[in-house]
Design a protein around this nucleic acid. Structure first.
Lengths: 192, 192
DNA sequence: AATAAAAATTAAGCCAGTTTAAGAAATAAG
DNA sequence: CTTATTTCTTAAACTGGCTTAATTTTTATT
């Protein structure tokens, strides 16, 4: 395949057809970002001007709560999109940080350029329609898990569903994402 | 405006342009449903074949938990879309019920017809891309509130942000949606 | 290899919110 | 208007998970 971002183009082609010339146009709209571990894509107070696609690595979104603790609200691994969609859609300041959890490669599409891309390659509007719907489905599923599981069950579910994740991400971030304290997560791990 | 579903067409036109002939095509794809209070649109085990737009009234999505209690996960008022997007996108059985909370008018677009609509009126693909992104933004906001607020704060926030809602919806549904027991909600209301 | 900084563990005390159970009030149905 | 059903309230006992604080382990830096 003749393209610069094979992970990304393969992903797009799972949902829509792109000719070779489409691929070249599409790629020209995306900016690759090489991120060191713990490097930030955006910080609280900035407008989230881009939507981010994870080519390689892992990023997270978090905010800092009133006790000055980082509360992780989302992770994104390879082939996942992540953004503060409120800030992105309205171009208003974000309350979040978006940060690389480990060394990562991310593709960024700018809010300002999106519409131009859609008019040049209409399939990309379809691609994003499908991606947004899929993200919404994932979000509904997660909401259901948060209602139906106890904190202990959240841990066990997450641990058995994504065991590799525990190797890649510090425990305190996982604890925060699951809605429990690091101390309690530690207790649950000991229990086995 | 010359159309059958003015609430809906006005909403679409907030996001994309439609000619009069577009309007006629679009409307032909939607099925109006008149619902009595407590009438169901879908039940657990069925495939959620439609995406629902609330013209008038209020609908909710809920599942029945292991204690046989109805757990409400979402409400939709006028101009909001609601569906089980996992079941809808994959055409697999749903774990949810979708029900009218009060007498309602809903427009349904069928999964099977969606793609035909998008090829006839491409602006509708754009409309749904925007709607899905907006729903995702709302979902991210809600997730943040669930992390940062205590149950008492959830109640107070909801109560001051949507006071009319308390008049329209039984308290036990609201309690469930906010993630607290009806007993505790009652106690909070007494406290004022 | 030595030092500093960050992350994870352990344990005791505590409390926000649940559970249980019974009764009162509101709404719907005949 | 009467009865049945659904919804809401009250209160006491209970507990899952948090807080606090001190210690150990791991990771990063010089």
């Amino acid at each position: 395949m003749n393209c610069n971002y094979p992970g990304f183009i393969t992903h797009v082609r799972r949902y829509v057809d792109l000719t070779q010339s489409d691929v070249e146009i599409v790629e020209s709209y995306f900016k690759p970002l090489e991120l060191k571990r713990r490097e930030h894509l955006i910080s609280e107070g900035q407008v989230c001007t881009s939507n981010f696609f994870v080519e390689k690595g892992c990023i997270r979104m978090y905010y800092v709560n009133e006790k000055l603790i980082e509360q992780t609200t989302q992770f994104a691994l390879e082939t996942w999109w992540l953004s503060d969609y409120f800030s992105f859609a309205k171009q208003l300041p974000s309350q979040y940080f978006i940060q690389a959890v480990e060394k990562s490669t991310v593709l960024a599409i700018d809010y300002q350029l999106q519409d131009k891309l859609f008019s040049e390659v209409p399939q990309m509007e379809r691609y994003f329609r499908i991606i947004m719907q899929r993200a919404l489905a994932a979000s509904q599923l997660r909401t259901k898990l948060m209602y139906q599981y106890t904190k202990e069950e959240m841990y066990r579910h997450f641990n058995t569903s994504f065991p590799q994740f525990f190797q890649r991400v510090p425990q305190y971030m996982i604890a925060s994402y699951l809605g429990l304290t690091p101390e309690y997560l530690s207790e649950l791990r000991r229990k086995g």
